[in-house]
Design a protein around this nucleic acid. Structure first.
Lengths: 301, 301
DNA sequence: CTATATCATAAGGTTTCCTTATTGATAAGA
DNA sequence: TCTTATCAATAAGGAAACCTTATGATATAG
């Protein structure tokens, strides 16, 4: 048995076709057929049932393929480990991020990160927390930027706390204040995001603690929609600080009452990742950036 | 990279010597040297520092070897899976068993099991529960016969309940009774096994529930020692039913009071074992054997 | 300074593996 | 029923990988 054998087997398992599997493996069909046969012989079991029109795995084959995938996956991880140890700041990094953070945070950190890690290719994926965790576990992502805490066996590093501000239309009675109390929100109705966004749950928690309620008529699909709804005078909402802007027809009021509602933004990754060194450096850099750029004074772009 | 490469690397990591590692791998030293060099080149990192007198792993090498061991281990597991699927009742089975069970149970099941699985080679290892669990986890054992429940992520199957009987010397006042009550034990002193035996803990639990106490002067290293001490009139003890004999100078009294003190004997294995089929068959056979042979009527040999 | 131990290198042969061409078997269509 | 298309197996020859033996280089010990 060798790793190539296993890769060929997995290709056949994925394509149910020797020819296509061979193509995928960049070898000729007979070469692949022969290797599969050799593997079967060395294991002493039939892995694939071949008829001329149909190729499918035996029950034994399914179990073996399952283990083969694990092995191939680990060999790739080994290579990745070596490559990262050679140069931790080189290669690719697949970064997941939640939609309520991406448009506001990325422009503030990507330019600096690109400059700091010029040999690094960054791939970005925007998705909900639940999907990000899934993709992380499946190895499709290397790390994720999201609101802590999350469930799962990940290494988690808090980066900064992001305040929530109350967003009201310019003409709103509260817009005359410079700050807002919890009491101001009592029995008010807030516009929130639709299900799936972690921000929705955090906002609901705030609602609960100040005796506000969610609007039953409307659930937004994005923060931008939410902002336009507020600007249009439909209602008020909570907005994370980094997403607050000036001169957009909305008035953002910071909270005066302690504890100020916030969410903690963090970077997480699989404990077993090969990119530990790069990622811990990245945490430090983002922490520094946030301290300098997202501070109270200049958080509003 | 291939599996052979990794095996060679692991051998060097284990022996810190190219020549000896090569011998272990049944190849010449240059062949091994070349493969290691090839691996280093393909990974792009230095794995081993060579001076003419000393061979040692780089920090990178240590991390890579760690992963290599995992991979090689899994390839062996894959082979084992195939072999077990080909013939589940063939090959080797490494069975662990606790010392307070081995001498009494094995003679009652090994002959039948040998007959049922003639192509199976059975290796037996006697050790305490803690050590058995460790060896199971490390892959040095395939399964273990012990008292349930145990801590850990294992598949567990109860086989039978084994009663505890009170062992008293023939001349003892209680020896005149045919059975014994919990009340008979109140404030009595019992001889127990030394630390490490699960039976000790179970006996202590019984002591606690009947207000008996442990003898402070003596702790036995085995059930046999315990039996001799009782026969010599030093004290009384609890004896698991399968270890009770007739005509050995000791009188074994069953408990009359409900619930009769017992321990549950079970077979456990790693959830990921390749020998699932064999082991589940074995569970059924031992259950049947226990129903037929360890029943109340003929438990005393 | 010599001997020894130890890993690296070199040259040549063996084995493994791959490629192209072809065969054989089966299912679908005429 | 015969033909055709599809697809995996087989065969033969060449390329690559790998191993072996012999030799080289270098550091340590005496």
């Amino acid at each position: 048995m060798n790793i190539r054998n296993l890769k060929y087997l997995i290709a056949v398992a994925d394509y149910h076709h020797f020819g296509k599997a061979a193509e995928l493996c960049f070898v000729s069909q007979p070469a692949l057929s022969m290797q599969i046969k050799k593997l079967e012989k060395s294991l002493g079991v039939l892995l694939i049932e071949r008829t001329n029109k149909r190729v499918f795995l035996t029950e034994t084959g399914k179990l073996i393929v399952q283990q083969a995938r694990e092995i191939v996956c680990r060999t790739e991880a080994l290579c990745e480990t070596a490559s990262q140890l050679k140069d931790p700041f080189c290669g690719e990094l697949r970064l997941g991020i939640i939609p309520t953070l991406a448009p506001s945070l990325l422009p503030r950190i990507i330019p600096e990160l690109s400059a700091l890690f010029p040999k690094l290719t960054l791939y970005l994926a925007e998705d909900t927390t639940l999907n990000l965790l899934k993709k992380l576990n499946e190895g499709h992502l290397d790390c994720a930027l999201l609101a802590l805490p999350v469930e799962g066996d990940f290494t988690m590093h808090a980066l900064f706390d992001e305040e929530f501000l109350l967003a009201v239309p310019i003409g709103h009675p509260l817009a005359k204040q410079t700050m807002v109390n919890f009491a101001d929100l009592a029995d008010k109705t807030l516009l929130l995001l639709e299900d799936g966004h972690c921000l929705r749950d955090q906002a609901l928690a705030v609602c609960h603690s100040v005796n506000a309620v969610e609007s039953k008529k409307f659930r937004a699909t994005s923060l931008e929609t939410l902002r336009y709804m507020v600007a249009a005078g439909v209602g008020i909402t909570l907005m994370p600080k980094l997403s607050c802007r000036s001169n957009d027809g909305v008035c953002y009021l910071p909270f005066k009452t302690l504890p100020i509602p916030t969410r903690t933004i963090g970077l997480i990754w699989r404990r077993s990742t090969a990119k530990k060194i790069l990622l811990t450096h990245m945490v430090e850099h983002i922490k520094n950036l946030s301290a300098v750029n997202f501070s109270h004074a200049n958080a509003l772009l």
